[in-house]
Structure formats: structure tokens, C-alpha cells
Lab assay of single mutants.
Amino acid sequence: MTEYKLVVVGAGGVGKSALTIQLIQNHFVDEYDPTIEDSYRKQVVIDGETCLLDILDTAGQEEYSAMRDQYMRTGEGFLCVFAINNTKSFEDIHHYREQIKRVKDSEDVPMVLVGNKCDLPSRTVDTKQAQDLARSYGIPFIETSAKTRQGVDDAFYTLVREIRKHKEKMSKDGKKKKKKSKTKCVIM
């Protein structure tokens, strides 16, 4: 069974824990209790493949930012979460993405942009803004509501699919490099 290491990042209060708990335990946590770091595991079937999701729910508070490099190193894919009623959390996505790329030393890291709290009427981040940002990053965008469960499975499952595509691409690139290195030079 394939294991996928997913990391949920975003500013404090955007609903990272609520999304994760909704996926794992099928219930909505409405009281806000700032996370330092929590880890969850769940076995699911995605596109006919049974897999184990190892999900790291991270601290959004700035005082825990020193811990970010460590979990970013171990993560295979990242859910970059903002709240649709919090423009600052949307603007912060850029910083999370840049930090992930720096730590992973790669421009090509599996990510999904997630606009959470889409059940709320007080939207300050337009869907088109988020779609445009995701398009500019070359990553999928999904709106979710941890409260109603809308888009929750889709967000995590899409990230797994992005990781699969990335692994497939990397193995193809690896095979191309191996083929090239088999060419021999004969000096007579």
C-alpha cells in the first residue's frame, strides 16, 4: 500500500485542523484551538488504489514558523489553505509557496490551493482571484467548507493525484537520464 505524506499549511484560523478532522473523523470542530502540530493517518481508496494518507496539520501562528522547514522537508505534497473571508490569509499563500519551493529546492512541488469556509456569506476573496492565482502557479484550486464537508475529500484526493503525477514524471525523467548515460565512448 502506497503511503502519501501530505502537509496542510496556511495562516492561523483558516480551518486547516477543521478540514483535516472532517476528512479523518467526519465531524466539524467549530471551536478554535490553535494547533502546534498534529499528525493523522487514514486509509482510503483513490482511483481504485488503496493508500495510506499521513497528514500533518501544522501551526499557522507566526511564533511556530521555525518548525516549518522541518515538516516541509518531509512532506510530499501540500494543501495551501486560505479562508475566503480573510484576504490576508490569501496573500500569505505566496509566502508559504515560496518557502516550500526553497526548502524542497524545487520549482515543481505537488500543491493544491484550497479556499476554505465557502459556506460563509462574508467572502472577501473572489473565486476568480483564487483561480487566477492557482493557474499562475500551475496547481489545482478547490473551494471547501469544513463545516458542510463540501470539497473536503476532493481537496485531499486531488493532492494525492498531483503527487502521483509528480512521481510518474520524475521516474520518466530518471529513465531518460539513465538511457543517456548508457551511451559509451570508444577510443581507438
Rank of each mutant, 00 (worst) to 15 (best):
V9N: 02
E162N: 03
L79K: 00
D69F: 00
V45E: 09
D47C: 02
Y4W: 05
D69C: 01
G13N: 07
G138W: 01
V8S: 01
T183Q: 13
K101P: 03
K177D: 15
E76R: 03
I187M: 15
P34G: 07
P110Q: 01
N116F: 00
S65Q: 08
Y4V: 05
I139E: 01
G138I: 01
S89W: 03
R68W: 11
K182W: 04
R135W: 03
H95V: 04
D154M: 09
N85I: 09
G15I: 00
K5Q: 02
E3W: 03
A155Y: 00
V114S: 01
K184M: 04
S17N: 13
A130F: 14
D33P: 10
I100H: 00
G60R: 08
Y64H: 13
V152G: 05
I93M: 04
L19N: 10
V14H: 03
R41T: 09
Q99A: 04
D173K: 02
V109I: 10
I93N: 10
K175Y: 12
M67G: 13
S106W: 13
G77L: 08
M170K: 11
K117S: 09
R164D: 09
M111N: 00
Y96C: 09
G48K: 08
T74G: 12
S136N: 13
S171I: 13
Q150Y: 14
K88S: 07
D105N: 15
E91S: 02
N116R: 00
S145L: 04
D38V: 06
N116T: 15
V186K: 08
L56K: 14
G12I: 02
P34S: 11
M188R: 15
Y96F: 15
V29W: 08
N86D: 15
K5G: 03
S145P: 00
K177M: 12
G174D: 13
A134F: 07
V14P: 05
D132N: 10
K178W: 08
Y32L: 09
H95I: 10
T35I: 00
I142H: 03
S17I: 03
Y32T: 11
M67W: 03
H95G: 03
R102I: 04
K165V: 04
F156P: 00
G12N: 02
G138H: 07
K117R: 10
Q150E: 14
D132A: 12
P110A: 03
I46Y: 04
H27R: 09
D57L: 11
E168I: 05
Y71K: 10
T144K: 00
T20V: 06
T74M: 13
G48M: 02
I46W: 03
L53S: 04
V152N: 06
N85Y: 13
I163S: 01
D92E: 11
F82H: 06
V103D: 08
K179S: 14
I163F: 03
F78D: 00
D153W: 12
C118E: 10
M188W: 12
